[in-house]
Design a binder for these strands. Structure first.
Ligand code: MN
Ligand code: MN
Ligand code: MN
Ligand code: MN
Lengths: 218, 218
DNA sequence: TAAAGTTATAAGGTATACCTTATAAAAAGA
DNA sequence: TCTTTTTATAAGGTATACCTTATAACTTTA
């Protein structure tokens, strides 16, 4: 009956809270701040802090507070990214009121693996801030992409980037609906153009344009 | 650090499993079936079954098995509805592969309150089956509706039902576009008819017809 | 530097949901 | 009917994440 994407929900929430509450990456966050944030007793906070420190998520400086180490910060950033993307989904696509979205996202944030998170981000148009204006941490995902020109016939993939970019090409790409994140399939390959399927549409891409469109083959 | 929509995640999963696995509502599901499904020991299953029975979610017939009572079935249906709607969201909007959607939905299913579930359903076009073809239980949302005849001038609402129904009336209603779910506004009230706005259209409804059209005032 | 305030630690407890081993009771089959 | 199989129950254990009360250690302030 385990949920989540690997790290325990509780641990994710502690790491996220440390990230949210800290004033600067290097200055330790007093345990009292965590106690207030969660409404837990100082003893309980101390217990969890010991555990987080032993398990290698944080640095604990007794009588001073905690900081995230690299591993803990990575989990915190991924959590906050998921949290804020779900918030955007809830407010932008489901019209959930602003004030409720935060709380609901507090559960959803633990439920999406990275692949789903990135697809969600693409669906939302890769927003850079949550409905409350807080920046959404960027994806730290590294993908291996292929130039559409080189993609084999029948390849199914996700548009990753337009590079090198130029005004003309960007306008064309927008017209074809080949924005980053879109799922496409290579349907035909000819001398002068490549036919790809985007959603229900078939579009013909001149090979010069196909040279600057990159996809991650899935 | 509690998630969920009220009922414990674990309890929801047990009730959902009983619903999924049962062959008929009345024939008890042997505990061994639950043990196999979850991969838990018979003793653990028995413990949980005792708890579910004590807490009033199921009937337990020793040596025969368990059935859901009304309360348990309501929770199971709501869970399976959420599960299958999230599956549709994952496959239809995020292009998550068929095979992965089920597992991811196994966590998301616990994370959406009813209002969010219904908005999600609407966003997806109120699908009636999951990507695997299994029917999605309908919303059991209860509304308080008013007869259109009685609805005050200016009232804005959603058509809930046509009752009592008859062939003639149904044909008229369809012609007016007053199908259940439609948003309408009462624009004018006269002796013999009521003028309502449906989408961009204005339609005149004879008072006799207005007697059998019910709306939920919003 | 001594008192006051804050933080840490020890000890014992709760609830949830899983586990194993052993035994008892009931149902099913030969 | 008698044996085998299935199901139930008792007893004791684990891990997680919270709790309270009491005491010890450290830091801050007067
Ligand atoms: Mn959370
Ligand atoms: Mn926010
Ligand atoms: Mn589940
Ligand atoms: Mn399904």
């Amino acid at each position: 009956m385990e949920s989540g994407v690997g790290v325990r929900e509780c641990i994710e929430d502690y790491l996220g809270a440390i990230y949210r509450l800290r004033v600067a990456p290097e200055s330790p966050l007093p345990l009292s701040a965590l106690g207030e944030y969660f409404g837990f007793s100082p003893v309980s906070i101390h217990e969890m802090v010991q555990k987080l420190s032993q398990q290698g998520w944080i640095h604990y400086y007794p009588y001073r507070g905690v900081t995230l180490n690299a591993r803990g910060e990575a989990v915190a950033l991924a959590l906050l990214r998921r949290h804020r993307l779900w918030e955007r989904f809830l407010t932008d696509m489901l019209d959930v009121p602003w004030a409720e979205a935060h709380e609901i996202a507090g559960t959803l944030e633990h439920a999406a693996p990275e692949s789903v998170t990135e697809r969600l981000s693409a669906l939302l148009g890769d927003p850079v801030s949550c409905p409350h204006g807080v920046p959404i941490p960027p994806s730290k995902r590294t993908y291996i992409d292929t130039c559409l020109r080189q993609a084999p016939l029948g390849a199914r993939g996700r548009v990753t980037r337009i590079a090198p970019e130029s005004g003309d090409i960007l306008r064309d790409v927008q017209g074809w609906g080949l924005l980053p994140g879109r799922q496409i399939t290579v349907v035909e390959k000819h001398e002068a153009d490549i036919i790809v399927q985007v959603e229900e549409r078939l579009v013909s891409i001149p090979v010069e344009s196909a040279n600057v469109i990159w996809i991650e083959v899935l």
